[in-house]
Design a protein around this nucleic acid. Structure first.
Lengths: 341, 341
DNA sequence: TGAGCGCTCTGCAACGATGCAGACATAATG
DNA sequence: CATTATGTCTGCATCGTTGCAGAGCGCTCA
């Protein structure tokens, strides 16, 4: 099972271990003759360096970990892709783990026996672990937080401006003349900071338009999946005065909502306009295609990776709060028939 | 940056390194008094074991790698989730990497300096690397192949019966009385074995029904994304005699096709019925919801992980070819209005 | 009393690689 | 010719951990 080591190659080529190492790494000058002899031995044994050993010696692994709640949530899958790309550009590989949004699973990562020490750094998209806890753990591994929890300057943090994003989405609906704009996805409890920011943006848009918010139109959901979007929409449709537009806190909720609307025989956007947030690819191909607020995922990934690598190199001063741009993408779910592609 | 080591703890507690190690691992019996003293030192220094060193000593990392073409393809994301779950059940973590279906990137993994040696095993879902090449690399790391390439017994391999799956999908359309059933996704070239198997199943279904296949209705696509599904569908609609049903080789193609049909004003399934393959969650919430052939992803993941772990433990004899069950799930895209949930 | 046992605890070697300092042979220099 | 520089090559120590063999000690029991 175990492959040949430098020692085996050295014995075969009748040179020192050190010389083989030099040949493998091209470090020190080696005469052509010796180099050739070593190379033959390397090939014959099909030597592969033991990276574990190399890492131990060098104190780094060249791996960072990306920890997300759920990998099969398109937003995270798309983000993961960008992170992998950004890391690769710096010679790093990314190991991905998912916590299922389970706080204990997240905390496990910070515990004494966590595999976190295998990595040079951690990109963490926490759902329920608080900054408080993170700090208390006094983790030894550099960490960059992704996404939209509120944090208090203890850790570097990359996210969009959630309030502004939600405000833009809601304003778009109001500008279309909709007057009963619902919101799906509020989470009025401790770990729902992101959702609360979006609710704040939703309210801001109304305030700026001089409109009141009917709190009945704000539907909380325990998580951000299609099914809950559909259920929330059904509840809204059952109201005596149902909404004529909905801002959903992510695209999956929005797609679930559209599904519920279609099933109920409502036309989108004619009867009810729908906006999501995340700009997952699926929204381009849904029927109707989905208007959404698009965070710049590539930028999120790049900034996060860059910041993490700085932190790894010890070049990071006070933890930066990085805000990444977003933009509204108007598609059929609010605008009706748009461009055919 | 570097944390305290066993040595530091030992010095502080005034015991041997070995005893600290014993306390940390609970290996050997340690008196309560010493254990307590060591524990104090451990806590004070906030000691974390260096897993790299441990791994070097033990010759294993407890990590396996999952290599897929694209992580943001829902099928792979959903599969990844299952693999992570299955591996976790055995105490393994999964590192995920994507190759973008780039053959060179895939080959890199097998090359001399690949990070593959960091892992106890590899789950590989290759797009363009051939079994031949894999074998030639004589890789030292245990490998299990996922997905649907044809392989020749060199490596353990887990997949569904692609011919049967495609046959079932096509037969379903024929049983609905459709007579011009198209196929989207053929790949009539070396690395398109999976697609070719599905084409074979498509033909078999016709043969068994005593029907001829109009080759014009078989549209090849370079990959399996939504956009190409839409384009292929547009091409089919432009035919003098367009199809009344389509079997798409995966769900993304199918969703793209549905999008194209909707845009063209065709009703699904009334004018054209659509079947996909993969059973990604998106298909449950699309409009119309998508009839599909569902591979048992959980089973694929479990069998693959089990097999890989057997191989790691050296318990594997001749590489097994594992066929995982699939089943047809009928939804609106072929059956029209079905159950409301 | 002393051999024998079991319980704790320890030190040394090793995993496979690289950093460092130096050995050795040869070439260049005064 | 002695001295220094140069270019190759080597051995030892080391990264932080665990496996192994055994040391020390108190206890039991003949």
């Amino acid at each position: 099972m175990a492959g040949p080591t430098l020692r085996d190659v050295a014995k075969l080529a009748n040179v020192s271990i050190r010389t083989v190492s030099n040949v493998v790494n091209g470090y020190a000058p080696v005469s052509d003759e010796l180099r050739a002899r070593v190379q033959v031995a390397l090939d014959e044994l099909d030597y592969r360096p033991n990276l574990i050993a190399r890492n131990l010696k060098q104190g780094r692994t060249g791996m960072i970990a990306l920890v997300v709640p759920e990998l099969d949530v398109p937003y995270f899958a798309e983000l993961a892709r960008e992170v992998i790309k950004a890391a690769r550009a710096h010679g790093y590989v990314v190991m991905i783990d998912q916590t299922d949004g389970d706080g204990d699973r997240e905390r496990e990562l910070l515990g004494r026996d966590s595999r976190a020490t295998m990595f040079d750094g951690l990109l963490l998209s926490p759902l329920s672990v608080s900054a408080e806890e993170l700090r208390a753990r006094g983790n030894r591994v550099p960490i960059v937080l992704l996404g939209e929890h509120i944090f208090n300057g203890s850790f570097p943090h990359v996210a969009i401006d959630n309030v502004a994003a939600a405000r833009d989405a809601t304003a778009h609906l109001l500008e279309l003349g909709r007057r009963r704009v619902a919101a799906i996805g509020d989470q009025p409890y401790a770990t729902g900071e992101t959702a609360q920011l979006r609710t704040a943006g939703y309210r801001q848009a109304h305030a700026r338009a001089g409109l009141d918010v009917d709190d009945e139109l704000i539907v909380p959901t325990a998580h951000f999946h299609r099914r809950l979007g559909a259920e929330a929409m059904e509840r809204l449709l059952a109201l005596p005065e149902p909404p004529d537009a909905v801002f959903c806190y992510n695209d999956l909720l929005a797609l679930g909502a559209i599904r519920a609307l279609t099933r109920a025989g409502r036309r989108v956007p004619d009867d009810v306009a729908v906006v999501g947030l995340d700009d997952i690819e699926e929204g381009q191909y849904s029927t109707p295609s989905l208007t959404t607020v698009a965070p710049d995922k590539g930028e999120i990934a790049r900034r996060a990776v860059d910041t993490l690598l700085e932190s790894i190199r010890g070049e990071l001063g006070t933890p930066p709060e990085i805000v990444v741009p977003h933009r509204l993408i108007v598609r059929e779910s609010t605008a009706g028939e748009v461009s055919p592609r």
